[in-house]
Design a protein around this nucleic acid. Structure first.
Length: 736
DNA sequence: GCAAGGTC
């Protein structure tokens, strides 16, 4: 009653529209508005009121999931736990306390509503988000609510969706979605607790050892690759390069077979060619069109940013999100490679023209056909990633600038013309053996003009020879090579593997890889599976092999599909998960100590490696490590040669914050770098106390202080006194 | 201290 919303702005009954995110609420409001759109803000929650076809609507939004599966017992060391329940997310996750205000606002708005529309994304998770809100925040309205079904947030489609909204459209989908949450929780939480508790049983120390439906297979890909690399037996082969004299310059064609396996054959060819003259037997020229790239979906952006800048996928996602929140680029968590005209190409291009960096290119493109070269992938809720054309309202960091530039140039190039290139090959016959030399030339630059700095395609001069020309052979050089083991994954290629195996989602893959690093399963940029990773995968193979198989996701998806169709019910699927786990968990529990022991050696070794910073710059033979003092419990850096060779190299570390070791060294003094994080942004720190960069910093700080002292400040004495009184308070408190 | 999935 006391609520001003129903009492004031919208006293008449209205339809409450639930959206998945603020962005969608805005777009729906814009699409439906006739002439009386009103915006209200409650705390940080924005809602819209409007009249559409004579009916009042109040449009509000969630922030993704507002409800989560949880363990009602809240006892984290107990397993198995099979009876799980839904809770408001803020009750489970402190970091998501802001969802409390969301739920509260929706709850109040629901009180004045006489009907409801679920307008979340029409997919498994969207349906679940809407269903849970209608059920828990609106008071069991999930059965009566209408469903607005749309696949893009365009005005036309949204209006259509609201006109045809009907009851019961997504019922099966919601059941399937809720089951997905429950099954993932039951598998993940139980097996992770079983592993962690086993480690505790044999060590009496806690360590988070986790596994899950997506972590499992992803970890297993890395371990599989590690095994392939370690067991790889290289076989030798040879390549042959001829050196030919062309009026004093040397041409170097390669023997047409890129791989000669027998040394005898190598000798035979080099002998046969010795002192001979080669004849240019054939020159072929072929023109080919090189199509522009497709617009970025999040996966493509992550791969490209890794290739060009070396950013990890999770870094890229984070930077892209900041650019999105600053309205510089569109919504980044998309799987679409399409740019519909509704985003208004001309408006974006004219916006970009105001940026000196792109003005010429953007202007040029806006005069063209404006036909983007699109990819095949789509997304139900969003187009591909594009720049909005807004100018930055603050100074961007260097990483933000780089990523922004990449997004802009990619956007520009998808409107570019096909590039026209020409390949030339000359075949040279030496004593009956054929050698080839290649050249490449760009005839028409097309889209390459806009993306040049990122393509890496370079022209190679075409050898200036004519058919029938004779070229004396200087010599033929054999080179012994070895087969290479399969390459290690990096974060980009591991993410790609997850994509092709359809494990995880576009919004979570990068985070899951990061989790595997955090757990000590993966190390290095070029990914190495640690001993701990081996240990966990081996244990799971033995006790619960399904959790590390890609197949589990396929099987669950099949079950969810059948739940959606009403062929089976959710209880059946959850029961199957419980049945499968029950035996595994019992076996693990009975052997906790033994299993813990199996992990102990691996963990000790992994932890030691994780704490290794790099070679010691003082004694050159030891390694610098993060050490925790047994006496003071403080952390610092010391050399592994401290005891044997009395190497005293050491460095202090900040005691607060999370340390990460990027494996990089300071460009000034060569000592290792660490990242320290307590707030939102990590702080890059060269651990060397005597690093020249610190001298500089010290001087700059001194200068700043001097300046501060020179320019009088407002109430300097007050400042001083207040900080003094604070510390006095602390003293008196501690002395009590 | 635990999963995976949305979103800021």
């Amino acid at each position: 009653m006391g609520y001003s919303y129903s009492a004031g702005v919208a006293a008449d009954p209205y339809t409450l529209v639930i959206c998945e995110k603020p962005d969608a609420a805005q777009r729906i409001a814009d699409a439906l508005k006739e002439d009386d759109l009103k915006q209200s803000i409650y705390g940080r929650v924005k809602t819209f009121t409007l009249t559409y076809r004579g009916r009042r609507y109040v449009i509000c939004s969630a922030l993704g999931h507002l409800y989560s599966i949880g363990d009602p017992s809240q006892k984290r060391h107990i397993y198995p736990v099979f009876d799980v329940e839904w809770f408001p997310t803020y009750k489970i996750d402190k970091k998501r306390s802001y969802t409390a205000q969301r739920i509260e606002t929706i709850h109040r708005l629901a009180a004045g509503a006489d009907s409801f529309i679920n307008a979340c994304d029409f997919d498994l998770e969207g349906e679940t988000i809407g269903y849970n809100i209608l059920k828990y925040a609106c008071g069991e309205k999930q059965g009566n609510a209408l469903r607005a079904k749309f696949s893009t947030l365009t005005e036309e489609e949204l209006r259509e969706a609201f006109q045809t909204a009907s009851r019961g459209l997504g019922e099966g989908l919601a059941q399937a979605g809720r089951t997905r949450h429950a099954v993932d929780f039951i598998f993940g939480i139980n097996l992770s607790r079983a592993l962690s508790e086993s480690y505790y049983a044999s060590n009496k120390r806690y360590r988070v050892v986790t596994i899950g439906r997506v972590q499992g297979p992803t970890l297993s890909y890395a371990v599989q690759r590690e095994i392939e690399i370690r067991t790889f037996v290289p076989t030798p082969f040879w390549t042959l390069t001829a050196e030919l004299d062309k009026n004093g310059t040397v041409l170097t064609p390669e023997y047409e077979r890129r791989r000669v396996e027998q040394l005898a054959e190598v000798k035979q060819i080099t002998e046969a060619c010795r002192g001979k003259t080669g004849t240019v037997s054939k020159i072929t020229r072929s023109r080919f069109q090189q199509p522009p790239p497709t617009p970025f979906d999040i996966g493509d952006l992550q791969k490209e940013a890794y290739r060009i800048f070396g950013y990890s996928p999770s870094q890229t996602l984070k930077i892209a999100e900041r650019l999105y929140l600053d309205a510089l680029i569109s919504y980044p968590r998309t799987s679409s490679q399409k740019l519909p005209p509704s985003i208004n190409y001309l408006k974006i291009l004219s916006g970009l023209q105001r940026n000196r960096e792109y003005s010429r290119e953007a202007e040029e493109i806006s005069r063209g056909m404006l036909q983007p070269h699109e990819g095949a992938k789509t997304d139900p809720a969003h187009p591909a990633i594009y720049p909005t054309g807004e100018l930055p309202r603050r100074a961007l960091t260097s990483t933000e600038k780089q990523l922004y530039d990449l997004v802009v140039r990619r956007f520009l190039s998808v409107f570019g013309e096909y590039a026209l290139r020409e390949g030339v090959s000359a075949t040279i016959d030496i004593a009956g053996y054929l050698f080839k030399i290649y050249g490449r030339l760009t005839l028409r630059e097309g889209w390459l003009k806009y993306y040049r700095r990122y393509t890496g395609t370079e022209d190679r001069a075409i050898p200036d020879v004519a058919e029938g020309e004779d070229l004396p052979v200087l010599r033929v050089i054999p080179k012994e090579k070895f087969d290479q083991p399969p390459p290690r994954y990096n974060q980009s290629s591991l993410l790609e593997k997850m994509e092709t195996e359809e494990i995880g989602t576009k919004a979570t893959r990068a985070d899951i890889i990061k989790t595997l690093y955090d757990r000590g399963y993966l190390a290095e940029r070029s990914i190495v599976a640690t001993d701990l990773a081996f240990s966990v995968v081996e244990l799971m193979e033995k006790h619960s092999p399904r959790i590390i198989s890609t197949d589990m996701t396929r099987r669950i998806e099949e079950h969810l599909r059948r739940i959606e169709q009403g062929e089976i019910d959710e209880e059946q699927v959850i029961q199957e998960a419980v049945d499968q786990l029950y035996e595994s968990l019992t076996t693990i529990k009975d052997a906790e100590e033994e299993i813990g022991e199996a992990m102990t050696e691996a963990i000790t070794k992994t932890v030691r490696e994780m704490n290794t910073l790099g070679p010691c710059p003082t004694c050159k033979t030891g390694t610098l490590r993060v050490i925790r003092s047994k006496k003071t419990h403080k952390r610092f850096v010391g050399c592994s040669n401290y005891q044997q060779q009395r190497c005293n190299a050491s460095a202090p570390l900040p005691q607060k914050g999370t340390l990460t070791i990027p494996g990089k060294s300071c460009s000034t003094c060569g000592w290792p770098i660490v990242y320290v994080r307590f707030g939102r942004y990590p702080w890059r720190l060269c651990i060397n106390m005597n690093c020249p960069t610190k001298e500089k910093e010290k001087k700059e700080k001194k200068k700043e202080k001097k300046k501060e002292n020179e320019t009088p400040r407002k109430m300097p004495t007050m400042r001083k006194r207040s900080s003094n009184s604070r510390s006095n308070n602390n003293h008196s408190r501690s002395s009590r």
